[in-house]
Structures are given as structure tokens and as C-alpha cells.
Amino acid sequence: MDIVCIVCPKSCRITAAPGNPPVITGNSCKRGYQFALDELTAPKRTVCTTVRTVFPDAPVLPVKTSAEIPKDRIFDLMREINAFTLETRVGTGEAVIPDALGLGADVIATSDLLKETIPEGENDR
């Protein structure tokens, strides 16, 4: 199978054939090897999106999965995220939805937006 590596902007064109061990050529780093291996068996992606918040100054907060999740669960995760509303002013790296869908990855905040713009009179947390 021909794969374009998405790990870095180099976009290496990798050829991967199943087997024991699989035959992987064209990668220029270890991460590329791992990516191709995953693509062969169980493709995974990091999901970057936003979550709804209760704060009018920032109606949505950017988030991502702390680790890659199976590609075929992306829309399941989006449904989970869409049903969620953030009520605390979390900062970058803090978990918003821990272990989402039980996949072993947290949905974490990727912005300090909510920490920066606390309106007067509102207590933090």
C-alpha cells in the first residue's frame, strides 16, 4: 500500500506491505515507520476541534486528543464532544473530557483563552 506520511511536512511517500515483519520503505524516520505500520493495521489520528463553553466571551475553546485515536472513531468522538459543555476556565493542557469514549486519550484544552479573558466579577472556577 502507498502511503503519504502525515507526521511532518516532508510528506514522505512510503510503501508498506503486510507481512511478518511488514516491509516498509520510503520513510525517512522512525516516526514515519510507525505511522506506516499503524496505517497498515489500525490507522490513528489526532482530533483537533473545539468544545462549547458557558462563557460568553469565548463560546468555544480549542481542544485536541492527548493521543491519537482510531480513525474510525473520529465521528463518535465528535458526537461525544458535541454533547459536552465546558463550565470551568481550564488552561492549555488540562483535560476537558478525560479518557473520552474509553479510548485512553483525554480531550485536552489547547488554548489559554479562558484564562486570559476572565471578565470582571467572575470568579475563576
Partner: peptide, 30 residues
Amino acid sequence: RLGGILKQCIHDGFGLLRFGARLTGPEYAQ
């Protein structure tokens, strides 16, 4: 707010050369 266009580039893939990490736009800006 500081950060320019990165504030809205919430996808990842930033910073591989600079930080050796796959950051989102807001994370890179931060």
C-alpha cells in the same frame, strides 16, 4: 489577544521543526 492567525488555527502540525513536537496553533503561539 496576541498570537495572530494562530489563534484560530486549532489543527495540529505546528512546531515540528522548532520544538520537535506536534502542536496546535494556539499551543505554538502560547
